[in-house]
Design a protein around this nucleic acid. Structure first.
Length: 541
RNA sequence: GGGCCCAUAGCUCAGCUGGAUAGAGCACCCGCCUUCUAAGCGGGUGGCCGCAGGUUCGAGUCCUGCUGGGCCCGCCA
């Protein structure tokens, strides 16, 4: 029937519509042209030649020539046993084979409180870490910041001005000073000799308004602590805090320049040192060393990423705001110019677009503490950690995000966070009720009753549960945690729907056990999925 | 002017790597609590998937060109 020279690529996919069975193959359609037969004839021949299998109940030819496979009841019910046995590990895999991956995110400089954009980066970046860990990667999370540049100097000058009683509207206020109310807080703490502990530094204020170095050190520690507190309240922490200044102290910046010059990719022009980044796909060459002898930010960026490479990360993901997208080509070009065998697409970037915060249909722009932007703390304080994490993590990163405060605060089914958490709480509630009524619960007995799950809404739930490991794998591979949020919304929908149509605690012991087992499986998967998003799974609401 | 991202129901968004009649929530209309939490469920109204070409047996999905919106284009980070 077919020329024996061809080697067809056999493709079997999940179906989108349950009337098409569980799995479907388009093989007959792809072979139709070369076989010079109609797709339906080919499909018929293939079906006739298929061996019998326990897990396939029947096959069907449909539409233009799809072969649909209907799996047997027992094979689809088996997922419950896998879930209950594997528990919190259900859905994990060893895809990463223990390889080292680094995820860098937030990386805010210590010049002010974290804003909503940092929150989005934190939600997305942290979920990526959790997804990678769940798929067998050896994950290291990292926060990179500059504690020594001109911005930090401006910060110190601003705090000093506040120490001397000046305000942002005074004539002698520093030109590029920070005007937010938090500067006043730092000044007050500094003057009263406070001690500050952050994740990566500890400083006691001298209280001397004339000592700019002391002020600088204190202000950085103070703001680092603020950021740590905000991130902690958000459920996010880091394995490594990396200082830009360390790249200078260790000579890595100098070494990087020397390497680029040695490799012939640098040239002097008008008193500055340039990298010929156009050799590596950039649209123009970039200055590395300014005429004043200082380096542009881009050079430490290259040195920093080379440092990551030397630390042995086969995969690095940088999560940043999309306003930094121009660094992507630049950093990769610099790394290529080092001739160190770094792959062209290394590191990977996940760039998130802007966040707009909405209240009563209007954009919110101001914060009392920070001045001209909405802080992460404002949001977490108002709508809570779970809702904030969910909303900031539930959208594809490369789409702009509307954060609707009214929706996040809503405690109805409008709000997907509560909707999903409620599914978990309901499942817990059923088990509590079971105990209250002194009904017998025996997991192994229940697992032997699964053939009782014959309702359409139960089968839909089984199909949904079966997909979970695949969702974890794909979300991790593409670094797109929002896929998990969508999945959980759908799973919760299937659960609530089934819950309303079929009572779990019925008199029939076998049916009751089977339904309770299904409910327990849903509870487990909801908990696992929410954990990957950094959202809690409450036992009651 | 150049680069990156986006465009799907009135609104907010999914769409599983090219498959079969395009999905969900909100909003609007109609129903469901003496029964495991109504923070829930069922039904209905509502779409030239921005526009125009192209590739393919097949395109919301891939390619090209437009249009509209966001971000970025410094010897700032």
């Amino acid at each position: 029937m077919l020329p024996d020279t061809i080697e067809p690529r056999i493709q079997i996919d999940r179906t989108r519509d349950k009337s098409h069975g569980d799995l479907a193959s388009n093989i007959a359609l792809t072979l139709a042209k070369v076989a010079k037969k109609s797709p339906r004839d080919i499909a018929t021949a293939i079906c006739a030649a298929l061996p019998e299998a326990d897990f396939v109940e029947r096959t069907e030819i449909a539409g233009p020539g799809f072969i649909n496979f209907f799996l047997s009841g027992s094979s689809s019910q088996a997922v419950i046993q896998r879930i209950l046995e594997q528990g919190a590990n259900f859905g994990t895999s060893d895809e990463g084979e223990g390889r080292k991956v680094q995820v860098e995110f937030v990386s805010a400089n210590p010049t002010g409180p974290l804003h909503v954009g940092h929150g989005r980066g934190a939600a997305v970046g942290d979920s990526i870490c959790r997804l990678l860990a769940a798929t067998g990667w050896d994950v290291s999370s990292e926060f990179y910041y500059n504690d020594a540049g001109q911005q930090i100097n401006n910060l110190a000058l601003s705090v000093q001005a506040r120490c001397k009683g000046l305000g942002p509207d005074d004539d002698s206020w520093p030109d590029d000073g920070y005007r937010g109310g938090y500067i006043q807080d730092i000044a007050a703490a500094y003057l009263s000799g406070d001690k500050v502990d952050s994740e990566d530094r500890h400083v006691l204020a001298s209280g001397d308004p004339e000592n700019l170095d002391d002020i600088r050190e204190f202000a950085v520690a103070f703001l680092r602590r603020e950021q740590d507190l905000d991130l902690k309240a958000f459920g996010v922490d880091f394995d490594v805090y990396f200082l830009e200044s360390s790249l200078y102290e260790s000579g890595q910046v100098e070494a990087t320049v020397a390497k680029l010059v040695e490799n012939g990719h640098a040239y002097e022009h008008e008193g500055a040192l340039w990298l010929r980044s156009t050799d590596f796909g950039d649209d123009k060459d970039r200055v590395m060393r300014k005429t004043d002898g200082g380096y542009t930010y881009f050079l430490p960026d290259v040195a920093y990423h080379f440092n990551k490479w030397q630390r042995g990360f086969v995969r690095v993901i940088d999560e940043q705001g999309a306003d930094h997208h121009s660094t992507v080509t630049r950093v990769r070009a610099g790394l290529q110019a080092l001739h160190e065998g770094i792959p062209e697409g290394w590191p990977e970037y996940v760039l998130h677009q802007m966040v707009t915060v909405m209240r009563n249909g209007e954009e919110v722009k101001l914060s009392k503490r920070a001045g001209n932007y909405v802080t992460l703390r404002d949001l977490v304080d108002e709508v809570g950690r779970d809702a904030t994490r969910y909303f900031l993590g539930a959208r594809a990163a490369n789409s702009q995000l509307n954060f609707d405060i009214d929706l996040a605060l809503s405690k109805t089914n409008d709000n997907p966070v509560y909707y999903i958490q409620y599914a978990h709480a309901r499942a817990c509630s059923v088990m509590r009720k079971m105990a209250d009524q002194a009904l017998h619960w025996d997991q192994s007995f229940a697992l032997a009753q699964l053939e009782q799950l014959t309702q359409e809404s139960e089968k839909a739930l089984l199909r949904r549960l079966d997909r979970y490991p695949e969702i974890v794998a794909r979300a991790a591979a593409s670094a797109e945690p929002h896929m998990m949020a969508s999945y959980l919304r759908e799973l919760a929908g299937d659960f609530h729907s089934n819950y309303n149509s079929h009572k779990i605690l019925v008199d029939d012991e076998a049916v009751r056990a089977a339904r309770a087992a299904l409910s327990q499986a849903v509870k487990q998967v909801v908990a696992n999925g929410l954990a990957l998003l950094g959202v809690s799974a409450p036992e009651s609401m």
